[in-house]
């Protein structure tokens, strides 16, 4: 056999060994993007205004989903993030009205952190499954938000607050996109490059082995839920700032979009592996599909059907083994 014929099969073998499932989210993102670029070229899909719009609309979900990546990678779940965002938005709005800008920011973050700490405490100390704890908290947080506001919207008159949290722009880039890129960059580094991130993955991959290796897995579970609550509080303020109002409905249902984004991004639902950048593309893919379907003139009911189908298909393709 000559050397030239030997390298060809070797190259083929290497191509065959290429694990395309790991990159399915990027492949899917590019494929859907190209598809829409062709099909919707006359509907303004590729206009910079529309593309920025997609970024803006997915920004809040992206921020929530970055923290959700940590939660799911540690083999837990947080269903309360959407209603925590709503509660944080009204608390921030009320505190701004009462005591001013700084108090508003502190209130929004503190509410998220408090709920995150309660979730984390119940899961790590009392060992109650996070699914149940956060399902209960979903109801509690949104109930409290309705209660303290009598279900009324809370207008925010501080233009600085609105400008910082999602209303303003940084040069040509909408502030919301800046926030989400910041969250992704920070999250990606922490998950992949810090001791905490490594311990999160080890806890999710094999809790016993992590425990036997000296990882305090309870502390890890507490911290990821604390993080997730705090970030949900931030997301609530982004809603409040952009819409210049705090309202209990803000964020409702975001937990499902965030979980879908995380799973689409290649994080294992059973924990142990996760990619924050993948999560961002997962969120963008969902935003892309939403946007394309609207431009294509589908009505809301049809959009939901198509979106659901695409998500199931993508996850099925990305499944290992």
């Amino acid at each position: 056999m000559t050397s030239s014929t030997a390298t060809a099969p070797a190259l083929l073998a290497r191509l065959g060994a290429f694990d395309w499932r790991r990159y399915i989210i990027y492949i899917g993102f590019v494929a859907v993007f190209l598809l829409f670029s062709i099909l919707l070229r006359n509907d303004g899909f590729l206009s910079s205004g529309n593309l920025l719009n997609i970024g803006r609309q997915t920004a809040t979900i992206t921020v929530i989903a970055v923290a959700m990546t940590f939660v799911i990678a540690s083999a837990e779940i947080d269903l309360s993030v959407g209603s925590v965002a709503g509660l944080a938005s009204v608390c921030a709005a009320m505190a701004v009205a009462q005591w001013g800008l700084l108090a508003g920011i502190v209130a929004g973050l503190a509410v998220g952190a408090l709920i995150g700490a309660i979730n984390g405490g119940l899961v790590s100390v009392l060992q109650i499954p996070s699914f149940l704890v956060t399902l209960g908290m979903l109801g509690i947080a949104s109930g409290v938000a309705m209660w303290i506001t009598n279900s009324a919207p809370q207008p925010i008159l501080s233009s600085t607050f609105n400008l910082v949290f999602g209303g303003g722009n940084l040069g040509p880039i909408p502030g919301l996109i800046v926030w989400s890129l910041l969250a992704v960059a920070l999250g990606a580094v922490v998950l992949a490059k810090t001791r905490f991130g490594r311990q999160v993955l080890a806890t999710g991959g094999n809790r016993t082995a992590a425990e036997f290796t000296g990882v305090n897995t309870r502390a890890i579970k507490f911290k990821v839920l604390l993080l997730s609550g705090t970030v949900a509080g931030l997301a609530g303020m982004l809603y409040a700032g952009r819409l210049e109002t705090g309202r209990f409905q803000w964020g409702a249902g975001d937990e499902l979009s965030a979980i879908a984004a995380v799973i689409l991004g290649g994080t294992s639902l059973f924990g142990g592996s996760g990619s924050v950048v993948g999560t961002m593309f997962g969120a963008l893919l969902i935003g892309l599909i939403n946007n394309g379907l609207i431009l294509a003139g589908l009505d809301t009911s049809q959009q939901q059907v198509v979106r659901g189908g695409i998500i199931i298909l993508a996850v099925a393709l990305a499944r290992r083994k």
Partner: peptide, 30 residues
Amino acid sequence: EQGLVLDHSVRDNLLLPLLGRLRRGPVLSD
């Protein structure tokens, strides 16, 4: 069950008890 995170790489498994030593500031040095 107790010794390894099977789906993680050999390197990540080896380094799990040693992460403290790999810190350069807040991040781990690859």
